[in-house]
Design a protein around this nucleic acid. Sequence first.
DNA 1: TCGTTCATGTAACGCGTTACATGATTGC
DNA 2: GCAATCATGTAACGCGTTACATGAACGA
Lengths: 200, 200
Amino acid sequence: MSRRSGVLEFAVLGLVRESPMHGYELRKRLNTSLGVFRAFSYGSLYPCLKTLVQQGWLAEEPGGDPGDPRGTPLSNRRAKIVYRLTAEGKERFEELLSQTGPDAWEDEHFGVRFAFFGQTSRDVRMRVLEGRRSRLEERLAKMRASMARTREKLDAYTLELQRHGMESVEREVRWLNELIESEREERDRRDQRDRGDTTT
Amino acid sequence: MSRRSGVLEFAVLGLVRESPMHGYELRKRLNTSLGVFRAFSYGSLYPCLKTLVQQGWLAEEPGGDPGDPRGTPLSNRRAKIVYRLTAEGKERFEELLSQTGPDAWEDEHFGVRFAFFGQTSRDVRMRVLEGRRSRLEERLAKMRASMARTREKLDAYTLELQRHGMESVEREVRWLNELIESEREERDRRDQRDRGDTTT
DNA sequence: TCGTTCATGTAACGCGTTACATGATTGC
DNA sequence: GCAATCATGTAACGCGTTACATGAACGA
């Protein structure tokens, strides 16, 4: 069955979709370009690429550097393998993009989801953002409850740690609120335009 | 060799040190009391307890609930196992506490370290805080560099994600600055007192 | 008595890393 | 020629989770 839910699969599909790449470069992009992804090692990346090829979502293409203008592969100028997204792979990626279940709200997953928001419908975006927000609010509630229960018994450092932790979560909630608000505004503005914009 | 570096071991030793406990309660404390620890499952906790006993750091004690006043175990009123820290366990914990190497600065580890700061010398505290800070500053530098390189090519969402990520890190750096500053002040005040406080 | 929570454990698996092995290409 | 870095891969292991199994104690 190979649940293969992983963040890696998602990120790889999304990155390769933007432009074909070989593994080594893919890894750099995971670290830097999309700043928030964690640094996966080759030990995870290459096996993952293999299975994605097996699934038929990626296709291997031997050949020169895709970003390299001096075309003419004089003989077989490199053992590079360039991966590109197949039609099925694109479908798969879109399927992953459209999922708005609880998985999409977890810390790791959410980061990737957000990074690919540009390729998503506003509906999905709002659902993911709102899901994430309510998840964080649940977490906040628990933290507050636990703090109320244990406040007096804890030393200054533990307390400070909890305080800072809570503040971080609260801060992310505010961030989400802004994002949701701006999505809403955009949507409303668009609706108005579509209806003929009679009110001004 | 069983490197057993894990956060779990550290947290368990620290919690059991405060007061003997059985596994089930230990787990609740990992989730809530020390708010920041992640929620370990029993599947990790119980095996961990076992190995800690094997190492001689914890001792099992059958018997009633430690926080239960009605002593008299009528027959053998429960299959509970209460764990307490042995002398070697205390030594081990102190050894872990005194480590100021790079491990102590990693995200997960740092949280636990901080939670037990109350049991640490100011020297160690400052080293850990400063280590953590410089690690975050390295990270910031990388993020800034990467953003400078890729700014134009990225869509609004990716950019926003990076911006928010950077702001989070910057915020933690400010937090650390305050903590370090207050540690420094306390130290200076103490030094002054010890020297006779001639200047006023 | 019957469901819930307390309490302990294990086996299979997921997902990733580390350390290792290999070799081509580039720049000095 | 030689070092650095680009580039691809694998085997062993670490560390944790899920799902399962078991049973005592408690409250309605």
